[in-house]
Simulated assay, not measured.
Amino acid sequence: MNETYTAFAGFAQTWGLLYFMIMFGAVLAYALWPKNRKGFEDAAQIPLRED
Rank of each mutant, 00 (worst) to 15 (best):
Y19V: 08
A9I: 07
I46M: 12
A26H: 06
Q13A: 13
W33I: 06
T6L: 09
W15K: 05
Y19E: 15
Y5D: 11
W33L: 08
L32Q: 05
K38G: 05
K35I: 05
P34V: 00
A26F: 03
F40I: 10
Y30L: 03
A12G: 06
W15C: 02
T14C: 13
A7N: 11
A9N: 11
L48E: 15
N36C: 06
F40Q: 11
I46D: 12
L32R: 03
L32D: 01
R37P: 00
G39R: 01
T4E: 15
F11H: 10
I46N: 09
W33P: 00
K38C: 05
A29P: 00
E50Q: 15
A7I: 03
G10Q: 03
L18I: 15
Y19M: 12
W15I: 08
K35Y: 05
Q13P: 00
F24H: 09
Y5S: 12
G10A: 06
E41F: 01
L17I: 13
A31F: 13
L48I: 13
L28T: 07
T6N: 10
Q45F: 05
K35T: 07
L32G: 01
Q13N: 14
P34K: 02
G16R: 04
F20V: 02
A12K: 08
T6W: 05
E3P: 00
N36W: 05
L18Q: 14
L28N: 04
K35M: 08
A29D: 08
F11L: 09
P34A: 04
A9W: 09
D51H: 07
I46L: 12
F11P: 00
W15T: 07
L32M: 12
R49G: 04
F11K: 07
W33K: 12
V27I: 13
A12Q: 08
F24V: 03
Y5G: 04
A31C: 15
F24K: 07
G39T: 01
A12E: 06
Q13G: 06
A12S: 14
F40V: 09
N36Y: 05
Y30H: 09
L17D: 08
A9M: 14
D42G: 10
F40G: 01
P47R: 03
I22L: 12
L18C: 14
M1P: 02
A43Y: 02
A26E: 05
E41P: 00
K35E: 05
Q45I: 03
G39A: 04
Y5I: 07
L48Q: 15
A44V: 03
R49T: 09
T4C: 12
P34W: 00
G16K: 04
R49S: 09
G10N: 11
M23S: 14
Y19L: 14
G25W: 01
W33C: 05
G39Y: 00
M23C: 13
D51W: 10
A29M: 13
G25M: 02
F20A: 03
E3C: 02
Y5H: 11
G16C: 10
Y19K: 08
Y5W: 10
M1D: 14
F8N: 12
M21G: 04
